[in-house]
Amino acid sequence: MNQNLDSPIKTIVTALHALREQKPLVVNITNYVVMNNTANALLAMGASPIMAHSREEMAEMMSFAGALVINIGTLDSQWIPRMGFAIEQANINNKLVVLDPVGCGASALRTATSRQIAQAANKLIIRGNASEIIALAGEKGQSKGVEALDSSDAAVGAARYLVKTYQCNVVISGATDFVITPEGQLQLHNGHAMMPYVTGMGCSLSALTGAFAAVGEETGLAATAIFGVAGEIAAEQSKGPGSLQLNIVDVLYQMDEATLIQRLKLS
């Protein structure tokens, strides 16, 4: 392994141990399609998920939660102000917000809401596919609903713009995953081509990004690395997308330091 990569690998392994020890509570305002998937991914990893959508309890929740994950997949006029209030409470309690701008660029509402959330959060990680990142940055990206038609490397410039504009870190998901921070970028080459055929893979990664942020890993690197390795291993054990969805939860539960170091493809 390249000596220059020792530090990122140490960051990932340290974060994994910290998450398993601390079992952080992660508040998710997420979409109806993936609530079960993301909750199971968080539980398997060792975190404690709560799907909280009520304004009445949000101030209390954010006073003791570790992080807030906002996923706009099933956006509507009732959820938008609740998301805004949740971000206010996260800011008050100095908690990090993970934004998953699902379908950003597919409609004016999604794009405008994603930008409002990014602007409002004091501590922020944005995790999206290439088309969503490009659209969020204001460039003309290719998109078809919530699917990415742009390659992840095509979104690096847009991600750097977002890092500078919102003082945040950005994760671009794709065949190659990119983690972009003010200090530079890392590329991760794990995962599997079957993963896009299961709904909620990116949403689960966003939720895990919140879990690792809650224990101090605020770049998105640990979640991206671990989920990519898990997807790769699960695909080897799966006949198709249905079994992949089950197997990835099992692999997350079984993930350990030795497996990570052996399988991780990082540059």
Rank of each mutant, 00 (worst) to 15 (best):
M1V: 13
T14D: 15
T14Q: 12
L19V: 04
Q22S: 11
K23F: 11
V26G: 09
I29E: 09
I29P: 04
T30P: 05
V34F: 04
M35F: 02
N40L: 05
L42Q: 10
L43N: 08
A52F: 04
H53Q: 13
E56Q: 12
E57Y: 05
S63K: 11
S63V: 10
A67E: 03
I80R: 12
P81Y: 10
N93T: 10
L96T: 11
A106P: 00
S107D: 02
L109I: 14
T113V: 15
T113F: 10
R115N: 12
I117D: 06
A121M: 05
K123V: 07
I134R: 00
A137G: 11
A137P: 00
G138H: 00
G138N: 00
G141V: 02
G145F: 00
L149P: 02
V156S: 06
L162Q: 02
Y166Q: 03
S173E: 09
T176S: 14
I180V: 14
I180R: 04
H189S: 11
G191E: 09
G191F: 10
T199L: 06
G202I: 06
S206V: 07
L208F: 04
T209L: 06
A211C: 09
A213C: 08
V215N: 02
L221S: 04
G228V: 11
G228E: 10
E236Y: 13
P241Q: 05
I248T: 13
M255N: 04
M255Q: 07
A258K: 12
L260N: 03
L264R: 03
L266G: 06
